[in-house]
């Protein structure tokens, strides 16, 4: 037996929660299913400075406010849920989880993206991190490597520098760091950060709590060996859509292709947020997707 809803939303990041607010306010019986906890990627951002109405707010704090609003609107939420099976091609979409089977005529996929892990095997996992908010303060007074030269890597480097890290070496494979020039300059102005461009991390050799790492410059072939206490990796994100290959229209990177109204190739199935094939991935764009997806789901259900 499945539990029946009007709308199921998978993923309780900002896209899924915004969709839930709109759906619940449209009187749709709405269930949000989340693998971890509400908030998604924004939980990992210490200060968000471009969210209208909040010149600077902690990501987890902002997400807590959205969660409260969503629940107050009447949406139901289940966190720490493992989805075992998606049946989404029929008129009734059904989701099998470790907490039971849930069914609805409409479904919004808002599962965002997960960080790309370092493609190097090393028995040093306790010192390789993907969340500076979680693990940064253990590196006060220590030397660290930041892998990646995008905005995330520079923003996180600034945060780590603020925690009292002794030195940061940013390693970027491209010729130029893709981060915004203003952020790069702000980071360099701390005097604690050095940047290696056209450089790839090729080896990590653990030496007790430290490790010796090998960097290779792609232009000159020069090798550099240095010792480090830890490593923070920000080399991008990938969409969690492997379960839908051959079912939903995906682009070559695995992002879900949608119509301007967030519809997919399956009637009643919508997508919202970072999981969607698009150019800009921000909180505000995810909220826009979530809004449109929920309103379209409502329209679909009223037909």
């Amino acid at each position: 037996m499945s539990e029946a809803y009007d709308l199921l939303i998978i993923g309780a990041g900002i896209a899924g929660m915004t969709a839930a607010i709109y759906a619940a306010r449209s009187n749709l019986k709405t269930l949000v299913i989340e693998r971890e906890i509400c908030g998604g990627l924004a939980n990992q951002t210490h200060t968000i400075e471009n969210f209208p109405s909040h010149p600077g707010i902690n990501g987890m704090e902002l997400m807590e406010l959205v969660k409260e609003q969503m629940l107050a609107c009447g949406a139901e939420l289940r966190e720490i849920v493992d989805i075992e099976k998606f049946d989404i091609t029929g008129e009734e979409k059904s989701i099998t989880t470790d907490e039971g089977v849930f069914a609805a005529r409409a479904l919004i996929l808002a599962m965002g993206r997960t960080p790309v892990h370092l493609p190097i095997e090393a028995d040093w996992d306790d010192h390789i991190h993907y969340c500076s908010l979680c693990d940064g303060n253990f590196y006060a007074g220590k030397d660290i490597i930041v892998v990646g030269g995008g905005n995330s890597a520079f923003d996180e480097s600034l945060y780590l520098e603020g925690l009292g890290v002794k030195s940061i070496t940013i390693v970027e494979a491209l010729e130029r760091c893709p981060a915004a020039e203003m952020t790069i300059q702000r980071t360099l102005a701390t005097g604690k950060v050095s940047i290696r461009t056209s450089t790839t991390l090729t080896d990590i050799r653990p030496q007790g709590s430290k490790a010796q790492i090998c960097l290779v410059n792609a232009r000159t072939g020069a090798k550099e060996v240095m010792q480090t206490d830890g490593m923070f990796v920000f080399i991008g994100q990938k969409p969690a859509t492997s379960a839908f290959s051959g079912i939903l229209g995906l682009d070559s990177h695995g992002y879900i292709e949608t119509t301007p109204d967030m519809g997919t190739n399956i009637a009643g199935v919508y997508a919202a947020g970072d999981i969607v094939a698009k150019r800009y991935r921000q909180l505000t764009t995810a909220m826009s997707d979530g809004t449109i997806a929920a309103l379209e789901a409502h329209r679909f259900l009223c037909r």
């Binding site: 906890i37 987890m60 966190e79 720490i80 969340c131 908010l133 979680c134």
Partner: peptide, 17 residues
């Protein structure tokens, strides 16, 4: 755990379940 650590918040919820 640490209060501002998202992974800790997840783990504590896992512990509750």
């Amino acid at each position: 755990f640490k209060s501002k650590c998202p992974n800790c918040k997840v783990l504590l919820k896992v512990m509750e379940k």
